[in-house]
Amino acid sequence: MKAVSYDRFGGPEVLHYLDLPDPTPGAGQLLIQTIAVGVNFPDIRERLGVYNKAETRVGGVQLPQVGGLAVAGTVVATGPQTSVPVGSRVVALMKKGAYAQVAVAEEPLCAVVDEDADLRVLAGFAAQAACAHLLLQASTTLRTGESLLVHGAAGGVGGLAVQIAKVLGAKPIIGTASTSERREFVRALGADAAISYDEPGWTDQVLELTSGRGVDVLIESIGGEVFEQNFDALAPFGRYLLLGSSRGPGEPFAPRRLMTKSQALIGFYLPVFYDRPELIGNALRFLTDGLKTGQITSQVDEVLPLNQAAEAHRRLEGREVRGVIVLDPTIES
């Protein structure tokens, strides 16, 4: 099979398109002929060696590696103890190995999809949608009528969190974004309001939108000074979901302050959920159903051949992609 692998950390130039032996599915595994491969920021962080730094505390990766964590395609072989028939079309997540013409996935990390499903969309959004769904239905349970604040709501995970929350009946749903254009996009996704976290007094806007109470659930991806400000926007019994810190970790946090309003601070890291594969499978099925009914919308910005994975990484790192970028192993450049 053709695959994209790297044997050292660095820029996109370390990615090599080469021939590797086809993998063999083991017990509980499916062998998937990939039709579409999602490109995600964790792929880039792995390639850079970010996860191999001691301070990230997430274990790292072993080299050489075929990277990537999301595919969609056709099942061409199965291992023992599986129930999905050969010939089924599936979307799947995996810890590694997606950047290839053939990939192995654990069956519980897959969702069977209809013959007419858009595999490029599914592969492109699978990881982001899984994160959003797991945040709202596994790390916590967002209930009908509860309020939600999503930072970075114009981004991949944030935008899907807005749409999923809408399906779940949350209200109000408040998104933050950095520009007026991106805030308009957030409202178009279904948010009841979109604000800027860089404006003085933005937490007052949140309180006004929630009748002075604050939000029940908050998804944090900014960090820095915004981390501290968020507590002014969080309701009693509120759940604060920590997804990322694009501005850095900020000042040290005293955990006992959570006691004053019986609040919870919950960390999130997708690979941990591979130990609970049924939750990822549920998330993928939710995405599949939402796309089918039109409750979840999506945009594939560009499709490139698999052998242009390095270029896909360059464009994603350069913030040149509005939706998602997908690799197609079935086409040549």
Score class of each variant (00 low, 15 high):
residue 242 L to D: 01
residue 223 G to C: 08
residue 254 A to P: 13
residue 227 F to D: 02
residue 199 E to R: 13
residue 202 W to N: 03
residue 218 L to Y: 13
residue 218 L to R: 01
residue 242 L to M: 05
residue 246 S to L: 13
residue 199 E to T: 15
residue 242 L to E: 02
residue 227 F to I: 10
residue 260 T to C: 07
residue 213 R to E: 14
residue 259 M to F: 03
residue 206 V to H: 07
residue 248 G to C: 04
residue 202 W to L: 03
residue 225 E to H: 01
residue 221 S to E: 09
residue 210 T to S: 04
residue 254 A to F: 06
residue 245 S to T: 07
residue 259 M to E: 08
residue 234 L to K: 14
residue 238 G to V: 07
residue 225 E to K: 06
residue 219 I to Y: 01
residue 252 P to G: 05
residue 261 K to S: 12
residue 239 R to M: 02
residue 200 P to H: 12
residue 260 T to H: 09
residue 252 P to S: 08
residue 260 T to I: 15
residue 258 L to H: 00
residue 262 S to E: 15
residue 226 V to K: 02
residue 206 V to A: 07
residue 219 I to M: 06
residue 251 E to D: 01
residue 240 Y to H: 10
residue 232 D to C: 08
residue 201 G to M: 11
residue 247 R to M: 08
residue 228 E to G: 06
residue 232 D to W: 00
residue 228 E to T: 11
residue 218 L to P: 00
residue 218 L to M: 08
residue 250 G to K: 09
residue 222 I to C: 06
residue 230 N to G: 15
residue 237 F to M: 12
residue 210 T to G: 07
residue 221 S to R: 04
residue 251 E to Y: 00
residue 222 I to M: 07
residue 239 R to S: 10
residue 235 A to P: 02
residue 229 Q to T: 09
residue 232 D to F: 03
residue 237 F to N: 10
residue 244 G to I: 02
residue 211 S to T: 14
residue 258 L to N: 10
residue 255 P to H: 12
residue 221 S to F: 06
residue 246 S to Y: 02
residue 243 L to P: 06
residue 239 R to W: 01
residue 260 T to Q: 11
residue 211 S to M: 11
residue 259 M to K: 02
residue 224 G to E: 05
residue 232 D to K: 12
residue 208 E to A: 15
residue 199 E to I: 10
residue 252 P to A: 14
residue 249 P to R: 05
residue 253 F to Y: 09
residue 255 P to Y: 05
residue 215 V to D: 09
residue 233 A to Q: 01
residue 242 L to W: 03
residue 250 G to T: 13
residue 202 W to T: 03
residue 221 S to Q: 13
residue 213 R to A: 09
residue 211 S to N: 14
residue 257 R to W: 05
residue 231 F to T: 01
residue 206 V to I: 11
residue 200 P to A: 05
residue 255 P to E: 07
residue 261 K to Y: 14
residue 237 F to A: 11
residue 233 A to P: 11
residue 210 T to M: 05
residue 260 T to P: 03
residue 244 G to Q: 00
residue 230 N to T: 15
residue 213 R to S: 04
residue 262 S to V: 12
residue 250 G to L: 09
residue 216 D to T: 03
residue 251 E to F: 00
residue 240 Y to I: 07
residue 225 E to R: 13
residue 260 T to Y: 10
residue 247 R to C: 04
residue 262 S to N: 14
residue 249 P to F: 08
residue 232 D to M: 04
residue 253 F to Q: 05
residue 224 G to M: 06
residue 223 G to I: 09
residue 212 G to V: 11
residue 241 L to V: 03
residue 216 D to V: 01
residue 256 R to S: 14
residue 209 L to M: 07
residue 216 D to Y: 03
residue 244 G to R: 00
residue 199 E to N: 14
residue 222 I to H: 06
residue 252 P to D: 04
residue 253 F to K: 07
residue 244 G to E: 02
residue 254 A to E: 11
residue 242 L to N: 06
residue 236 P to I: 08
residue 213 R to T: 13
residue 256 R to C: 10
residue 200 P to I: 12
residue 202 W to H: 02
residue 224 G to K: 09
residue 214 G to Y: 02
residue 242 L to H: 01
residue 207 L to C: 08
residue 238 G to A: 06
residue 200 P to G: 08
residue 217 V to P: 03
residue 252 P to R: 07
residue 239 R to N: 08
residue 201 G to Q: 11
residue 225 E to W: 00
